[in-house]
Amino acid sequence: MHKDFVPTVSIEKFAAYLDGNLTEEGMNEVASAIHSDDSLQDILSSGYMVDETLSTYDDWNQIVQDDIFTDSFDIPNIEENLDASDIFPQNEDSIYA
């Protein structure tokens, strides 16, 4: 898609169309715009592809690990006198040398 692409319908209206939250007239208007605009067709196609990909996952645990869904985690103990050489070993090719 070209960097100067200006859609023929607003992002909000396009999203409302995808969610089915427009009047019948609004749905028809956006459908007509999509039908006549290759870029909008590409966006719609990409959205369908994302939806289809996500629908193939049986459970969100296949995408997001359980520990990310919780708010408890261990903060690593980092010593106050730790410097970059402790984390990034130096050698002759190092940008820190």
Rank of each mutant, 00 (worst) to 15 (best):
M27G: 11
P76N: 14
L18G: 08
D93P: 04
E29P: 07
E25D: 12
D58Q: 08
S39M: 14
T23Q: 06
V64G: 11
F14H: 00
I95Y: 12
P76E: 05
Y17V: 00
G47N: 12
Y57V: 03
D74A: 12
N91P: 10
I11N: 09
I75Q: 15
D66F: 07
F69K: 15
D42Y: 10
A97Y: 10
L18R: 15
E29I: 09
S46M: 05
S94D: 11
D66V: 04
L22Y: 03
D4T: 04
Q90R: 08
F5V: 07
D66W: 06
I68G: 10
H35A: 13
F73A: 10
Q90H: 05
D58A: 12
P7R: 05
D66C: 01
Y48A: 05
N77D: 05
D38C: 06
I11Y: 10
D37G: 11
I63Y: 05
D74K: 13
S10R: 12
D86A: 09
F73N: 03
V50K: 00
S85L: 02
D83Y: 13
I75R: 01
F14A: 09
D71T: 03
E29C: 02
A16M: 09
D86Q: 08
M1P: 02
A33Y: 13
V64R: 08
I75N: 01
D51N: 11
H2S: 04
V6C: 03
N61G: 00
V30K: 07
W60T: 00
E29Y: 01
A31R: 10
D58L: 07
K13S: 03
H2I: 02
A33C: 13
D86R: 04
L22C: 01
V50W: 10
E92C: 05
T56C: 05
N91Q: 15
I95M: 11
P7E: 03
D38R: 06
D83L: 12
D83I: 13
E29N: 05
H2L: 08
F5D: 03
I95H: 03
D37S: 10
L44S: 14
N21R: 15
I63N: 06
E29Q: 09
F69M: 12
